[in-house]
């Protein structure tokens, strides 16, 4: 349905996206996962025809849309990362404004505005000014505006940044419902691994402009099928202990957080007893030590040596 073919994008000397290939089929939720600065937003802007790639092609229904973007533009609704709304207008006035921009008129426009307000749970707040909204309400309205013209494809660029868990959960449920009930195709970018894990059928993982993995969740997690993810938890760490882990020949990746260290090791190697003796040696009071099932975060760690939110 929608494809990015060998897309590259340069901004002066910075190569934001390098030879990216992606495809999106009708009715699926595709996730684009990566840390900040990975090139996700640039990829999304190219996908939605807002910027032209330096190289490569964007195809919608097998036709290039770089020079003639209108067929794709009619089919997509874009939820930008920013709150792209008029703060001094009410929720209803914002929807009416963007509806008019999309050439909706009269009773059709009013009906669509009512439906959207219902879908995003803001019917009660329709007359309130956007500037008085909480972050979560603004995000919901931001999504609602993109759905006004009933697009086939909803492209969402980090739609849950900076909001409370309740609003986040509401947004995720709304996206899931739109996909199930309306068969809406969704492209969802995030640096929250758990959101992508929860929502998406297929995932593309980007880092520093490169596509480093793609496939279904299961396929991606299979990358770690021959490896174990070991979690060590303690109150504090010593530099020598961390250095010892990093130098260990059987440890492929080490990620250190305040109270948890995650290691990736080959499945056939059992490091448990060695880790316990090391904690004794370096005077670290161990709280827990266990093998985890691999997550997308672990895959990212395995592929890049860094955590998603580094």
């Amino acid at each position: 349905m929608l494809e990015l073919v060998d897309i590259s994008k340069h901004f002066k000397k910075i190569e934001a996206v390098k030879a990216l290939n992606m495809f999106i089929e009708q009715g699926e939720i595709v996730g684009l996962l990566g840390p900040n600065g990975a090139g996700k937003s640039t990829a999304i802007s190219i996908l939605s025809t807002l910027i032209e790639p330096t190289q490569g092609d964007v195809r919608f229904l097998k036709k290039s849309v770089i020079k003639k973007p209108s067929p794709l533009r009619k089919a997509i609704g874009v939820v930008p990362q920013e709150i792209a709304l008029y703060p001094q207008l009410s929720a209803e006035e914002n929807l009416l404004f963007f509806g008019r921009i999309y050439r909706l008129k009269g009773s059709t426009l009013k009906q669509r505005v009512n439906e959207i307000l219902e879908q995003i749970g803001l019917t009660e707040k329709r007359k309130a000014l956007v500037e008085s909204f909480s972050g979560g309400m603004k995000r919901r309205l931001n999504i609602g505006v993109a759905m006004l013209h009933s697009p086939q494809i909803l492209i969402m660029d980090e739609p849950t940044v900076g909001i409370d868990p309740q609003s986040r959960s509401y947004i995720l449920e709304t996206v899931k419902r739109l996909n199930k009930e309306n068969q809406m195709t969704v492209v969802y970018t995030s640096h929250y691994m758990e959101e992508v894990d929860y929502l998406c059928d297929r995932i593309y993982i980007m880092d520093q402009g490169n596509l480093i993995a793609s496939g279904t969740k299961e396929e991606i997690k299979q990358i770690l099928s021959s490896e174990n993810t070991i979690s060590i938890q303690a109150d504090h760490w010593s530099e020598a202990f961390i250095a010892r882990l990093k130098d260990h020949e059987s440890v492929t990746n080490v990620h250190v957080e305040e109270k948890e260290i995650t290691l990736i090791t080959p499945k056939e190697v059992n490091l448990f007893s060695e880790i316990i003796s090391m904690t004794d040696k370096y005077d670290i009071s161990l709280r827990s030590l266990h093998v985890k099932s691999p997550t997308l975060e672990d895959v990212f760690l395995h592929l890049t040596g860094r955590a998603l939110r580094d």
Binding site: R73, V78, A84, I101, Y102, R103
Partner: peptide
């Protein structure tokens, strides 16, 4: 343009 409203309008038929 900074808020993204301009991009929204570019994607619309206007």
């Amino acid at each position: 343009k900074r808020m993204g409203v301009w991009d929204r309008m570019i994607l619309s038929p206007i």
